[in-house]
Each structure stands twice: as structure tokens, then as C-alpha cells.
Simulated scan of single mutants.
Amino acid sequence: MIAINDVTKIYSTRKGHRTVLDKISLTIPRGEKIGILGRNGAGKSTLIRLISGAELPTKGQITRKMSISWPLAFGGAFQGSLTGLDNLRFICRVYGADFEQATPYVQEFSELGNYLREPVKKYSSGMRARLAFAISLAVDFDCFLIDEIVAVGDSRFHEKCRHELFEKRMDRAMIIVSHDAGYIREYCDRAAVLDSGKLHEFSEVSAALNFYHGTL
């Protein structure tokens, strides 16, 4: 379970303090898939960062009783001077995963070939995303964070990502941020809408989508 209790996030800007999230609460049990909708700048990515632990809330508390991934396809935390395999080794140590077991999976899934033995700073953005996605799936997380982009590359690779995530790991919890109404409708059990710092929860995805479209 993940429990978000009265969480507020305030950033300091040149024009003063800006409250991005205002006393929001949300509970995600094991295996549930929830969609988070909101306009650009509504705070969706901020919420994902708070849940992942990359940032701390200004006020409130987030309780995590299951392992949580970083946002899928996010390669911003890679050490550029290390090779893809060295980054995998480091991440496996951090998360207590078996490097020898994870390596063949990452090699096959990422399709990076010999580039896995090259420094990540030489990778294109797409290559970094493929490596990050492969490592995310190689580590056994209870909950996956999906911020807008869940697949990279061509249509064949998109389908490969979809199958690995939504079919092979259909028993895992997921928190999905997306502007794509069809995507939220297809994969989520329920949804919530971020608007003006407040989180509006709905038990039915269709009700959340109707509310979201009304805020546009």
C-alpha cells in the first residue's frame, strides 16, 4: 500500500511561493492501477516525484509499504561516464537485485547490443530511455510509476513494452500519468484529476474523464 496523507508541495519562485499540491490524500493498494489526469503544470509530475521519493513534501506524509519504481523510461539519474552495464550493476546494488540475473534480460529487452558496454553519455535520448525501461522491468517492483511515456522506439518496440508491462506484470500496482483518455480508460481501475492544486478522486474512470474534460 501507498498512503498519501495531507501532502502539500510549495516551491519558491521569483514571484513568491507557489503551491503546486494542496493537502492532497490518496491510497493505492497492491495491484491497483490508478490514472492521474491534469492539465500541463497541474502538478502530475511533481506528485510522481514525491511518491518515488525523489523529492520531499513541504507538509504531510507519504507512507510506502511496497517497492516503487522510478518513472519508467526516465534515464536522468544515469551516471554518464559509466557504461550501460555499469549503471545496471549500480542500480542492482541499490535495490538489492541480482545483477547476473538482470543482465541477460536488459541485454535482450533494450536491444542496445554493444552499446551496453559504452558510456551512457554517448547514448541518444531514445537509447537512454530504452535502457531505463529495461532496467525498470528487470528489478522486481511492486508498483510502477508511469509519467506520460511508457514506450520508446518504433511500433514493434511499443508493443513489446506494452506486453511486458501490462500483460506480464498485470498483478502489479501502477500509477499512470497521461493526457491520453483512451490509455487511462484501457489500463486503469479508477482515476483522479489534479486541478488547481487539489486532487479529485473518482471510483469510475469515466466520471474522472468527464470531470477532466470539463476543466480544459
Rank of each mutant, 00 (worst) to 15 (best):
M1Y: 02
I4P: 02
I4G: 01
N5G: 00
D6V: 00
V7Q: 07
T8P: 03
I10K: 15
R14M: 05
R14T: 08
G16F: 07
G16P: 07
H17D: 15
R18L: 15
R18Y: 11
R18H: 12
T19K: 14
D22C: 12
D22L: 07
K23W: 01
S25K: 11
L26N: 07
T27Y: 05
R30L: 10
G31R: 11
I34E: 00
I34T: 10
G35T: 10
G35P: 08
L37F: 13
G38V: 02
G38W: 06
R39P: 00
R39Y: 04
A42S: 15
K44L: 10
S52F: 05
A54P: 00
E55S: 14
L56F: 11
P57F: 07
P57D: 02
T58L: 06
T58W: 06
I62P: 05
T63A: 13
R64V: 08
K65F: 07
K65N: 14
M66K: 05
S67C: 09
I68C: 13
W70R: 14
P71M: 06
L72T: 07
A73V: 14
G76W: 09
A77N: 09
A77T: 08
Q79T: 11
G80C: 02
G80D: 14
G80S: 10
S81L: 04
S81M: 05
L85W: 11
D86C: 01
D86T: 02
D86A: 14
N87P: 04
L88Q: 02
L88V: 03
L88C: 03
F90A: 12
I91H: 13
C92Q: 07
C92I: 06
R93D: 15
V94K: 05
D98I: 00
F99P: 03
E100N: 11
P104M: 10
Y105I: 08
E108K: 12
F109P: 06
S110A: 12
S110E: 01
G113A: 04
N114Y: 13
N114R: 14
Y115K: 12
R117M: 12
V120Y: 01
S124E: 08
R128E: 09
R128Q: 14
R130D: 04
F133Q: 01
F133C: 01
A134S: 14
A134M: 00
I135L: 03
D140H: 08
F141N: 02
D142V: 02
C143T: 13
F144G: 02
L145K: 06
L145Y: 07
I149C: 08
V150T: 10
V150C: 05
V152E: 06
G153E: 10
D154C: 09
R156N: 14
F157K: 08
F157M: 09
H158E: 09
K160P: 10
L165P: 01
L165Y: 04
E167T: 13
A173P: 07
I175W: 04
V177T: 05
V177L: 13
S178K: 03
S178I: 13
H179I: 10
A181Q: 15
G182C: 09
Y183C: 03
E186Q: 15
C188Q: 09
D189W: 01
V193L: 06
L194N: 10
L194F: 11
D195R: 11
D195E: 15
D195L: 09
L199S: 09
H200D: 08
E201H: 13
E204R: 13
S206C: 00
N210L: 11
N210P: 00
F211I: 06
